[in-house]
Computed example of a mutant assay.
Amino acid sequence: MDFSKLYRPSALNSFQFIALTGVIMSGAAHLIIKYLVANPLPAGFPWLYVCWTALYIVGSLINLFGKPDQHHHH
């Protein structure tokens, strides 16, 4: 089992990449709302992190245990 598929950017699948991008963008939005905007965070905002984590876990499982397609030539 190649655990570098969990952290090496060139080995991430699309689910993992989307989840990491979502965490980074949500974190940036969190900091902007908290320190630069007078409004409080929306009520369900922390659930974004739960969703990104779940998507990353699903993508990691697919990446680690999925079988590559034999007919894919790209």
Rank of each mutant, 00 (worst) to 15 (best):
L36I: 07
L48A: 14
A28K: 08
M1R: 04
D2M: 08
F17G: 07
Y7F: 15
Q70K: 14
L48G: 15
L41R: 07
L6N: 03
V58L: 14
A19T: 05
Y7V: 04
K5E: 00
V58W: 13
G44Q: 08
F45H: 11
H30S: 09
A29D: 03
S10V: 03
T21W: 04
P40D: 04
A11K: 12
G66K: 00
Y49T: 05
N63F: 03
K5I: 00
A11C: 05
L48W: 10
G59R: 12
D69F: 04
L41Q: 12
T53G: 13
L61T: 01
L20H: 01
D69A: 13
A54N: 02
F65G: 03
F17W: 06
A28G: 13
Q70S: 14
H72G: 04
Y56R: 12
I24K: 03
A28L: 13
I18C: 04
V50K: 11
T53Q: 10
Y7H: 03
V50R: 13
M25G: 07
A29H: 09
A19K: 03
F45T: 08
T21M: 08
G66N: 01
I18P: 00
I57E: 02
I62C: 09
H74V: 00
A11I: 01
S26W: 06
A11Q: 12
N13R: 00
L12E: 10
S10Y: 02
H74N: 01
F3R: 06
Y49E: 03
G22I: 04
D69Q: 13
T21D: 05
S60I: 01
P42F: 09
D69R: 06
I24Q: 04
L36E: 12
H73V: 08
